[in-house]
Design a protein around this nucleic acid. Structure first.
Lengths: 345, 345
DNA sequence: CTGAAAGCGCTTACAG
DNA sequence: CTGAAAGCGCTTACAG
């Protein structure tokens, strides 16, 4: 584990025939150094294979440039896209952020957060696991590290949130489905303890009611937020008497599962049952049928999050306004053409 | 960016009424400290919200506990699964690794690698981007940091590799397809400059030839390693006179694309055209038809990689044996039942 | 078991 | 523009 007797600024100072202050200045791109002196220094750096010790610099400067992104499920394509989007934004600001996955496990999240803190993280973006306790982030807040959450809002927490307009997304989906002639609707998948769930469902449900759908014709089934969950939900939904003919799914993964389960039952998505997803992951447009989904503009969501913590770091605050990104209904093929009132099968 | 006047071991030494050496010892879990003394110290730590400064410790100890995983495409589900698998292995060894994405961009990879090095990475696992120049890793090697590559082998590099037995996988697929009665076969997708490509194709091609398929009946079409690439490849393949009736795809993503393109042409995967994927991502089993694929045992691949760098770190070497993981053909539905010699359509 | 002292590689006033 | 000196928060012999 020893970082082999590596060159230090002292070595390169000797090599270049200057003092180590000078080397340090060059390293920091100070304009105080004569160009030819800087060139000498740079040459020595290249010759010796010197590696800047950022840890030492951070210690001395009492600041750091590491930013952490703590994600609850990196194998969920939506979050992978989100992480990559944030990374891009940071990169163009000259920061290399680190990603860590918590596998939807609060214990692991605690470890990861502790490690990020000890590593001297200057900022943190967290897509928190389910059941994150408010105390879990308390230590970070009291350390004065700028931290925001993304997508999921923590109960009883005043941490800034960057998230899409889930309520509006739910509403858009309801309008679309009802506009197509559906009268018995479902909201499938997701866990009721998630803020994202509550918001999406709220928008969906309120709009259904507003447009005259009776409470009793709205089927709500919780489930895992992945394909498997979607399959289970659809199966449960269709078993019911007077089952729904259309569904807004908690997210696209659930929607894919729903479509698979439909086919397994000999039902054709779009023709026999309308499906709307949420998030609009890249895959949505390639699926057959192409998935109608609520686009949350993942890239700009990631960008906002990145810029927000960057700004917080610069202004040395731990507060920021919540940011709600706009959403769009992307109509593709999974809801089929308009239909008269009718039934599946 | 200042890490607010945080407590140091000196503060907690004062608080606990001991010397800072004692605090340091407690922090390191030394057995030299009397239990009640240790308890006092721990209480002071909890009271002050003290955060261990790992950077300072690393500086003094001239070692570090950060491990980096540098991945060329985190939005590829296979690599996301791989990263998460490695992370899990590290986690159970008490190390929190950091993930970075390079977006298949060598420039970005250089930046990321530089940053990891400056951050004092004690070990590195790299799934390199295409066109990675050997010099890109030279600096790391000469810094004496244990580094291995995963999946992709670098040309002209002696870095240890952890990868699946791609040649064997290609062979298994060819045997399977030919056993089902196919005589005109294709290898679709992927870039010829990738070692993974060369190996998979080699196993496939050699086996075809060995089993009596004439060279001319093997169609090879390069393409992107994602769904879009698969779609393009299939379209190109089917345009050819005497086109193939079955294909091994470079990876599962390509296979999904191939199946989508088939449907768009009114062809049914399995019935009209047999498809085998490679990697066996989680989605393969959920797809319709469920995808026959070469499983590379992603989890154990990740585990091996993690253990290899861990071992290298412990033994302070930068050399290790290549590790080739075994592969398995997972037969699902995408190749249909056996068929007589015949044609598509 | 505990304390005083040196030093890891850097940055930052402060002189010159 | 450049050099000498102090100090960031820790660990590690070394005494006691």
């Amino acid at each position: 584990m020893t970082l082999r007797d590596k060159a230090t600024i002292l070595d390169i100072a000797r090599e270049a025939g200057v003092s180590k202050s000078t080397v340090s200045l060059v390293l920091q791109g100070s304009g105080l150094i004569r160009p030819d002196t800087a060139a000498k220094v740079r040459k020595a750096i290249a010759d010796t294979g010197y590696v800047y010790n950022r840890g030492a610099a951070n210690l001395r400067k009492a600041q750091s440039n590491v930013i952490g992104m703590v994600i609850h499920d990196l194998t969920n394509p939506f979050y992978a896209e989100l992480a990559v989007g944030m990374e891009r934004a940071f990169q163009s600001a000259g920061v290399v952020p680190f990603i860590a996955n918590t596998a939807e496990n609060p214990i692991r999240q605690d470890q990861v957060l502790k490690s990020m803190l000890e590593q001297g993280a200057a900022g943190l973006i967290i897509a928190p696991t389910r059941n994150t306790q408010p105390e879990a982030l308390r230590r970070i807040e009291q350390a004065g590290v700028p931290v925001i959450t993304i997508m999921r809002r923590l109960p009883e927490s005043r941490l800034p949130v960057v998230a899409p307009d889930n309520v509006r997304g739910g509403a858009l989906a309801a309008e679309h489905l009802i506009g197509k002639g559906h009268r018995r609707l479902a909201f499938l998948g997701g866990h009721a303890d998630l803020s994202v769930y509550q918001e999406r469902l709220q928008g969906f449900r309120d709009t259904c009611l507003r447009l005259g759908i009776p409470e009793g014709d709205i089927t709500i089934i919780e489930g895992e937020t992945n394909r498997m969950g979607g399959m289970a939900c659809l199966n449960a939904a269709v078993e019911r008497p007077d089952h729904p003919t259309a569904a807004l799914c908690f997210n696209d993964a659930v929607a894919f599962g729903v479509m698979i389960a439909l086919r397994k039952r000999g039902l054709e998505p779009a023709r026999d049952f309308a499906v709307v997803g949420f998030d609009d992951v890249v895959e949505a447009q390639h699926y057959i049928p192409a998935l109608t989904s609520i686009s949350v503009d993942t890239a700009s969501l990631g960008e906002r999050a990145a810029h927000t913590v960057l700004k917080m770091m610069q202004t040395r605050t731990t507060r920021a306004e919540d940011q709600i990104g706009s959403v769009t209904l992307i109509v593709r093929d999974s809801c089929g053409p308009n239909r008269a009132m009718g039934d599946v099968k």
